[in-house]
Simulated assay, not measured.
Amino acid sequence: MALERHLEQAIDVLRPDHSPVIAAFLPIGGEPDLSALLARLHAQGLAIALPDTPECPAPLRFRRWWPGCAMRAGRFGTLVPQTMEIVPELLIVPLLGFDADLHRLGQGGGFYDRTLAALPGARSVGVGIEALLLDSVPVGPHDIGLDAVATETRLRMKGGAA
């Protein structure tokens, strides 16, 4: 799938030289299903984490995930691994919209902005479809832009590299 290929390209460019912890998500609503890609990354020896959504206004917490690990129901219809917490260095972030400057629209809770602010060295790549590209996204003082956006048609990187 082209989206997964562009996402893998972003991971290769953005990840540190060592084997980082990569945070991702399982789909809710119309979000893309990345479970096959996550299983492949896990099989390559990378640590995968899924979000555990706390009460507002806290940042997301992340728990280690692997295919078949025990899961529980989380907030907002998510599934959360019943495993230890780990800290990601690269975050794969869902989006409802994005602009050419790689600002994103999310669900409106600010969870990913708070999380990225709490992890200043972490890199981030948004995942969505090209039809979600907007002329501009309103940016507030606490909004944090992405390092990349992967869609089914291309990979956009901060600074225009791809």
Rank of each mutant, 00 (worst) to 15 (best):
21 V>P: 04
42 H>I: 00
46 L>E: 00
146 L>V: 04
61 R>T: 04
132 L>N: 06
106 G>Q: 00
62 F>D: 01
28 I>N: 11
90 L>H: 11
48 I>E: 02
118 A>G: 12
132 L>I: 04
19 S>Y: 14
20 P>V: 03
126 G>A: 04
119 L>A: 06
94 P>E: 14
150 A>D: 06
42 H>K: 01
54 P>R: 06
120 P>M: 07
112 Y>N: 01
93 V>I: 14
117 A>S: 13
31 E>A: 13
136 S>E: 04
92 I>T: 05
77 G>L: 09
110 G>K: 03
132 L>K: 11
95 L>N: 00
58 A>F: 15
64 R>N: 05
93 V>E: 07
39 A>P: 03
45 G>Y: 15
88 P>H: 10
87 V>Y: 14
14 L>V: 06
161 A>L: 07
44 Q>A: 12
47 A>G: 02
138 P>A: 01
107 Q>V: 02
31 E>D: 15
114 R>C: 07
64 R>M: 09
16 P>F: 08
2 A>H: 09
17 D>N: 14
78 T>H: 05
124 S>A: 15
61 R>Y: 10
143 D>R: 00
63 R>P: 05
60 L>R: 03
3 L>I: 08
135 D>H: 11
161 A>P: 02
96 L>F: 03
141 P>C: 00
40 R>Y: 09
18 H>V: 06
33 D>N: 01
4 E>N: 13
155 L>Y: 05
139 V>F: 03
122 A>L: 10
5 R>V: 00
3 L>W: 10
44 Q>P: 02
11 I>S: 02
89 E>F: 08
79 L>Y: 14
104 R>K: 10
15 R>W: 03
85 E>N: 08
156 R>H: 11
50 L>Y: 04
75 R>N: 13
133 L>S: 01
67 P>Q: 10
115 T>Y: 14
12 D>M: 15
68 G>R: 03
151 T>V: 04
21 V>I: 11
1 M>H: 12
157 M>F: 11
149 V>S: 01
40 R>Q: 13
4 E>W: 14
121 G>L: 09
106 G>I: 00
122 A>T: 05
154 R>I: 01
57 P>K: 12
123 R>C: 08
84 M>H: 10
17 D>A: 15
90 L>I: 06
125 V>K: 05
69 C>M: 04
142 H>L: 09
61 R>C: 10
72 R>V: 08
75 R>W: 14
51 P>F: 10
108 G>T: 02
38 L>G: 08
138 P>L: 00
136 S>P: 00
10 A>D: 04
24 A>V: 00
36 A>M: 13
118 A>Q: 08
128 G>D: 04
12 D>W: 15
40 R>I: 01
68 G>P: 05
79 L>A: 15
19 S>K: 14
39 A>G: 10
32 P>V: 06
1 M>K: 06
1 M>Y: 09
18 H>T: 08
127 V>F: 15
109 G>A: 13
137 V>T: 00
31 E>C: 13
72 R>G: 07
70 A>G: 08
156 R>C: 09
39 A>V: 02
6 H>W: 12
20 P>L: 05
45 G>C: 12
124 S>W: 10
143 D>F: 05
12 D>S: 15
68 G>E: 06
84 M>N: 09
47 A>V: 03
55 E>S: 15
4 E>C: 13
73 A>W: 07
108 G>V: 01
44 Q>E: 12
127 V>I: 14
47 A>T: 09
